[in-house]
Amino acid sequence: MAETLASRAAPAAGAHARTRWQMLAPRMRRHKGLMVGLVIVVFLALIAVFRDVVAPQNPIKIDVTAALQSPEPAHWFGTDQYGRDVFSRVVHGASISLTVGVIAVAIATTVGTMVGLVAGYYGRAVDALIMRIIDFMLAFPGILLALGIVSVLGPSLQNLMIAVGIAGVPFYARLVRSTVLVAKEQLYIEAARVIGVPIPVILVRHLLPNIVAPIIIAATLGMGITILQAAGLSFVGLGSQPPTPEWGRMITEGRDYLRDAWWISTFPGVAIMITVFGVNLLGDGLRDVLDPRLRI
């Protein structure tokens, strides 16, 4: 009995999603900011994937005879103090920053969603306990939490993703929990529970679809913050290690050369700005279209 009900509910939800999409697509296309953001993000993703084609020069190859050349046709963004091609480093940096952003946000949303689902669905003691933990995690400003985690794990690109990811967990957990609190009052959830559908099934099959939109919006907007945080930690020496062409790190490496070779630090910074700008536009747009009342 439970089986049939659940299996009947699923395709219905799918059909619902399709019509919803058909309704949203034109609105998305009309939203200028969203489209601009989408174009930027897709463009950057393409650059990241085809980095060896876009910038065929080896981003970590040192050639001191070519050090500190200003932007010119052979080196569009000039070269750094080791003679490495800055354009090539910026292009290869795209894949690193996007990877860091995606993985850290994936960690944050996955853990955050699970925690939020459990807290919101079970309520009472479980909720109270989880929310206390979340509260005290929120007592640490995100960057400080990440700093603390890095100081324990040690600086590396991998630990950076973990640190920034964990630092984002409470944000998503709280968002998911509050959405679940509203959703679980709905009749069909109540019905499923009454007829004894297993709780994991309820959580994943019935509750999750309700919170997908807010999570997508939050994750997109969170991606921008994540990329900035990761770059910042690398900037102060607590993230990626040389010779990785990571943008935050490149800004640090060019710092001493600001006066005589402004291009070393400037271009990676512009790259970060464009990336986060694109992601933010996309996030804002998605919010406007999917859930205008959501305050993030």
Partner: peptide
């Protein structure tokens, strides 16, 4: 403020 400047050069030359 980062590694001493010779370190990355060494790394590159060793590579």
């Amino acid at each position: 403020s980062g590694n001493l400047p010779e370190i990355e050069l060494l790394q590159g030359q060793l590579l």
